[in-house]
Design a protein around this nucleic acid. Structure first.
Lengths: 373, 373
DNA sequence: CGGAATTTCGTAAACGTTTACGAGATCAAA
DNA sequence: TTTGATCTCGTAAACGTTTACGAAATTCCG
C-alpha cells in the first residue's frame, strides 16, 4: 500500500494525494476529503523512509542514555520520567521521540557519530555528560540541533540544562551547619560523570563560606546505587572520627546508607543526620525516618527539553540562528526527620526548629555569628 | 556528504562504493580498503532513509512502552533493565532498538498502527498487554514480526513471553500456608492490564488446592506504586478481620505497605507476613525486615526478546515461516524475614524453618497432611 | 595463443515520497 | 466574447541508496 495505489484507487495523481495529505492549499476541499477518507479506510500512512529521503528530515528527536554511566540508568526511573515530559511536548510539534540506549559494548562517541552520519534524527539530546565529553565536541562541529542534559567543560556554545547542584549543596550544608554539624561527609558519585564533581565542589564551597574545610577523606565516591550507598555507610562507620552528618547527591545512596546504618545500630535522624537529593526513585519517600530531600519537577524538565528542541529544529528549518539556551533547574527542599540538631556537639549549634521553614534562607551565616544553644 | 561525493573523491562509481561498504564479494580487496578508509576519514555512513527506502527494511526494532498502564513505567526501572538485554543482543544482529514511549495523549492502538503503516521498524515488541488487546488483534493482520511482552486473551497464534505469575502465586501461597496462615490477602494491580488478573486468579487456584476460598474482599486492587501499596495497607488495617498474611504482585506495593504498617505500629514479619514479587526496584532489597521476594533475571529476559526477534526477522527475510514461541519466564524465591510462622493461629500450622530451603518444594500439601507444632 | 571462466567494476533502474512547474478549467470583469 | 486571474491538478524530477545486468579486464587452461 503506497501512494500510487491510493492514487489509482481514487483515480487522481499521486501529486494531488500528497498535497491533500500534507494540508497544502492547492487542492479542493472535496478532493481532500476523499483522499483523507480513503487513506483512513485503506490504512495508508506515508512511508517514512520515502518521506525522510525527499524532505531531508526524519521528524525524529533522539534521546541518548548510557546504560552504565551513573546515575545508573537501569537502577532508576529517573529517565523514564524525563521521557514523559519530552514526549508530550514533541508530539505537539509532530516530532517523535526515539530513545537510543547505549549499551556496554558500544562507545557513546561512535554511537553518536553513527546517529548523526546516518541522518537518523533531526535533533539529539545527550545525557550523562562527563567533564570532558567528546560527544559534545563532535556535535559542535556538526550542523545538528542538540541539547546536553548535564554540563561539561567542553568549550563551545551550545544549549544545555542541568540540575541546580550548587543550590542543593548550599541548602544541604546550610541546614546541617545551622543544626550544629561541623564534621560533614559528602557522598557523591564515582566515575567521571560531571555532576559528581560539581556537587562535591559546591559542598566544599558552601563549607568554606562558613569557615570550614572539606577534608578529602570526607568525600566518599561510590557508584550510584543502593549497594553504593551501603558501601558509603561502611566507609562512614569505619572512620576514626565519625562525621555527624552526611549529604548525598542521590537518593539511592541514602537508601543503601540507611540500610547499613540501621544494621550497625546507628539510627538516621538520631545518631547521624542524612540529607538526600531528589525524590526519584519515589521509594525514597517511604524511608523511615523520613529523609530530608529535594523536590524535583522532572516531567517539567522534560517539557523544557522538548520545547527547546522544537525551537532549535524550527530555527534551523527556517534558516535562523540557533537560540542557544542554558538552564539551571531548581529543586526545593523537603525537610524530613533525618536531619536533627546536634545537641552533643562541643560548642553547640544555632538553635533551630527541627523542621525548618520550607524555604530556608539562603543567607550565608558565618561561624562567628552563631549563638550557643 | 553522500555516496556520490565519496565515489567522486575516490574516482570510482557509486555502485562500487556501495558494494565495498556492504561487504559484497565482487569488489577487489584493494578497492574495498580504499573505500573503507576514505569513509572513515571523511566521516561517511550511508544515509538511513535512502538505504531503508531501497532495501524495504529499516534495521530497527521498536519496543513500545505505555506511560500510565501499570506497572507504571515512570515509577520503575523495570523496563530499562529489559532494554539493556534486548539492546545487547540486537546489536549483534546489526539491528537497532528504538523505544516508543506512548504518552497519555496518544492511544496505544493508533500509535501502533502508525508505527506499522509508516514502515518505521522491522519488528515490534509490545508490552503491558491488556486482557483484550487491540494492538495484538491489529498486528496479527499485518505482516510484521512482533512479540508481546505479556499474555492477552486475544486469539491468534503469535510469539509472547510472560512472567511466571502462576508459579510465584503458588510458591507464595504455599509458603504462607505452610507457615500456618489461613487468611491471606492478595494485593494486585488495578486497571485492565492482564497480569493483575492472572496473578489474582493463580492465587485463588493455589488457595483452592489447599481447601481455602479466596474471599473477594481480600483481593485488593491498587495502582502499582508505593502510594498504591500505602493504600493497600490502609485497606488491610481497616478490615474487621485482619488477614495474617499478604502476597503482592509488585514490590513497590510491598514498599508502600511496609510504610503504612509501620506507621500503624504493625511490624511486618512479626505481626503480619508479607510476600513481595520481583527485585525491581532494587530498593526493595533494602527493606527492613528483609522482604521475601523472587529473583528475576530481567536482563536475560531482554536477551530472549532480542534473540527471538532476530529469528523472526531473519525468517521473514528468507521467506520462511515465522517460528512462533511462547515463553513463561521463571522466578526464584528469595526468603526474607517478612514471612514468619503464625504461632497464634488456631490449629497452628506445619512447623517449618523460618528460612525455608531456597527451592521450596512445589508439592501441594493438603490441609489434612499438616501436623500440629 | 585462443577461448572460456573468473574477477572487477560501471550503468541505470528502482524504492516512496514531496514539490516546482506548468497546463487546463473555471470564473469574474470588461 | 475576450482577457486575466484564480483554482485545481498532473507531470516529472529529485532525495541517497542498493542491486540486477552487462561489459571490460584479467586469469586460467589446454
Amino acid at each position: 500500500m503506497n501512494i500510487h495505489d491510493l492514487a489509482k484507487h481514487l483515480n487522481i495523481s499521486i501529486g494531488t494525494v500528497s498535497r491533500a495529505l500534507n494540508g497544502r492549499s492547492d487542492v479542493s476541499a472535496e478532493t481532500r476529503k476523499r483522499v483523507l477518507d480513503a487513506a483512513r479506510k485503506l490504512g495508508y500512512s506515508p512511508n517514512q523512509s520515502g518521506r525522510s529521503l525527499r524532505r531531508g528530515s526524519t521528524g525524529m528527536v533522539g534521546f541518548m542514555v548510557i546504560a552504565n554511566r551513573s546515575r545508573a540508568v537501569r537502577g532508576e526511573a529517573f529517565f523514564m520520567t524525563v521521557f514523559d515530559g519530552v514526549q508530550s511536548v514533541l508530539a505537539k510539534h509532530n516530532l517523535d521521540l526515539v530513545i537510543y540506549y547505549c549499551g556496554d559494548e558500544q562507545s557513546p562517541e561512535t554511537y553518536v557519530q553513527r546517529i548523526v552520519e546516518r541522518g537518523l534524527v533531526d535533533g539529539l539530546i545527550v545525557s550523562q555528560t562527563t567533564r570532558v565529553d567528546h560527544r559534545i565536541d563532535y556535535l559542535l562541529q556538526q550542523n545538528l540541533p542538540f541539547i546536553a542534559f548535564g554540563r561539561s567543560q567542553s568549550g563551545g556554545d551550545h544549549s544545555w540544562i542541568d540540575l541546580d547542584f550548587e543550590g542543593v549543596a548550599e541548602e544541604s550544608i546550610d541546614l546541617l551547619y545551622r543544626l550544629g554539624h561541623r564534621r560533614i561527609a559528602v557522598a557523591t558519585t564515582a566515575g567521571d560523570v560531571n555532576y559528581g564533581f560539581i556537587y562535591a565542589e559546591a559542598c566544599r564551597a558552601a563549607l568554606k563560606r562558613r569557615g570550614l574545610e572539606l577534608d578529602d577523606d570526607l568525600i566518599i565516591r561510590e557508584a550510584i546505587s543502593e549497594a553504593g550507598g551501603y558501601r558509603v555507610g561502611e566507609r562512614l562507620l569505619a572512620m576514626k572520627q565519625r562525621p555527624t552528618g552526611v549529604v548525598s547527591v542521590e537518593n539511592s545512596l541514602a537508601i543503601g546508607l540507611y540500610s547499613k546504618l540501621k544494621e550497625a545500630g546507628v539510627e538516621p535522624g538520631r545518631d547521624i543526620a542524612v540529607v538526600g537529593f531528589d525524590e526519584t526513585p519515589t521509594f525514597g519517600l517511604f524511608l523511615q525516618p523520613s529523609l530530608t530531600r529535594f523536590r524535583l519537577a522532572l516531567v517539567d524538565l522534560g517539557r523544557w527539553l522538548g520545547e527547546h528542541m522544537a525551537e532549535l529544529i524550527e530555527a534551523k528549518r527556517s534558516g535562523k540562528a540557533a537560540p542557544v539556551a542554558h538552564k539551571i533547574w531548581p529543586l526545593e527542599m523537603v525537610p524530613g526527620a533525618s536531619t536533627i540538631p546536634l545537641l552533643s556537639a562541643a560548642g553547640g549549634g544555632e538553635t533551630v526548629a527541627l523542621r525548618p521553614e520550607t524555604k530556608p534562607a539562603r543567607r550565608v551565616r558565618r561561624a562567628s555569628e552563631t549563638a550557643g544553644s
